[in-house]
Design a protein around this nucleic acid. Structure first.
Lengths: 296, 296
DNA sequence: TTCAAAATTATCATATAGTGGAATTTTCAC
DNA sequence: GTGAAAATTCCACTATATGATAATTTTGAA
């Protein structure tokens, strides 16, 4: 039951050349620290916080080391799922899904259910034998209800939404993306969440631009696209976000093309491509090239 | 003594619309979770881990929220120190230093001492009244001894080193930067540390290029600069690190100029400047422009 | 190798983390 | 507002985190 964080702590302490007594001093007793480091006791969150502070290490870095230099479970779940999806690995998807469903049954916490739904959505796209449109419809509704209900969107909600956005109706996407932007605003200086919200906004605009859109309606969503573009401009203000700035250029070009300024738009996108080539980011350049061919 | 994480947990739980009973189920008793959330009890690290997992939130994000959407203490310490340094705010520096010295006295842990030393180094540069060359010499030696001794460099060591690098002898910088690169290799996928090591390598090369160098020797360090440049190229492989790639271009240009290929070098740097202008990163462009004027 | 000092562990005592269930408060349909 | 159900808190009790101190192991200089 107990996770053996103590051994990791001991390792780090030794790597830094600090003695057990020194580390314990002012925080806890020497004997207890020894016991904890050996794995013979769990530790209180308060104590652990103060020990890590003395080691000049934050929790995140500590856990990264503890997990043998791997990201945390949540991040790995999303990574594994999206890799399996991109590789069209139905078996892996099914496996992931059953794992989440098991946890859902075990704890009754809906979040595990949503994870399973995300994977089900992936499955329905990848697996040609998949036949269950009802479930999918229902799944998506459950998911979006959750997203509307949550008061603050963090890494989890943003990533969950990002994975399913393409399957929602544009009107729904507009509302949810707006919600996402508003309800994650306080995280603006937190890299992981900042990246997630940027990705959501970017995908939203790309989706609204069509024609990847499964809903063949004639709406143009021009106003909404400008709205989301302005959000992107607000949150990518830092000069050093060059990657995001290149994407922004691409989007602006695409939007120009959409509203009729074809030449201007193409010029912008070509500029983005050129920039990427100059920096030897060939794959990214090719992706945008492909995108350009697709929309003109 | 006890940190009141419970209240933050309750807030997050409510924001996600999960009931106390649901969250506790399978992890701990309802009564205890209530007690913890009210701030009437500390909690074991093991339990906390499982509760956060059910909330689909990692420790880092939790603590970020807990600290009222601010980064952790360590990061803030370095930020505050470097801001005070850049603003030449001697008073603030003195205040920070005495805080760290107090902790050093209290706990006897050397890391607080090193923090104080870092600030002392800053002080000696900023404060015109500062007169104590001896101490500074000794300080730097203590610091570099620590850095050589530590077996794994994390965010702390890299940032500490980054702040004092300019005051070391080039030969020392070469050895320490090499050590930094080798001893932080396992963190390559961990953003915060990746950024720190990139910054170290970048600053190392800039420093070796001179003429910011206070040691007026005639060595050219050509071989070493290529070595560090190759490290930078290895760790900045991901195509999406555009910012790092622009800096790399700048460095390559500077190196060209240094070894005699003046025109080629200037062209590279001008290309970097142009790229930044294209992306409206005017300040960064101007910085490089200034740098170019300085070295030619 | 030897011995003393430093670092760690073992033993036992105590404070507090954590449980089960009854009592209370909150929520919400009517 | 009222009452029933859900959510939370209170209380008495148990398990375990943590401390004080003695015993053991490790280190490192001679």
């Amino acid at each position: 039951m107990m996770v053996e964080y103590g051994k990791t702590l001991r390792m780090i302490r030794k790597q830094k050349g600090i003695t057990l007594k020194r580390l314990a001093d002012g925080v806890c007793s020497v004997s207890f620290l020894s016991k904890f480091e050996r794995g013979d006791s769990d530790i209180t969150l308060g104590l652990m916080t103060r020990l890590l502070e003395k080691l000049m290490m934050n929790f995140d870095e500590f856990l990264y080391i503890h997990h043998d230099y791997q990201p945390d479970n949540l991040e790995q779940f999303f990574k594994t799922a999206s890799t399996a999806y991109l590789n069209r690995d139905v078996k892996q998807l099914k496996q992931l899904k059953s794992g989440q469903i098991k946890k859902w049954r075990q704890y009754g916490v809906e979040t595990y259910h949503y994870n399973a739904l995300l994977i089900e959505v992936y499955e329905s796209i990848v697996d040609k034998d998949y036949r269950n449109d009802d479930v999918q419809e229902k799944d998506i509704q459950l998911l979006s209800e959750y997203l509307f209900r949550v008061e603050v969107w963090g890494y989890y909600e943003l990533t969950l939404y990002n994975g399913t956005l393409l399957l929602l109706h544009p009107d729904m996407v507009i509302m949810l993306s707006r919600t996402a932007y508003e309800k994650s605003a306080r995280f603006k200086d937190y890299n992981k969440v900042h990246d997630a919200i940027t990705s959501v906004l970017f995908n939203t605009i790309i989706y609204l631009l069509g024609p990847v859109n499964q809903f063949h309606e004639a709406f143009s969503y021009q106003k909404e696209m400008s709205e989301f573009l302005s959000y992107l401009e607000i949150i990518t203000i830092p000069e050093s976000n060059l990657t995001e700035r290149v994407h922004l250029l691409q989007l602006k070009g695409a939007l120009d093309i959409r509203i009729g300024n074809k030449d201007e738009g193409i010029a912008k996108i070509k500029q983005a491509i050129q920039l990427l080539h100059d920096l030897n980011s060939t794959k990214m350049a090719n992706n945008i090239e492909q995108y350009l061919q697709l929309i003109i």
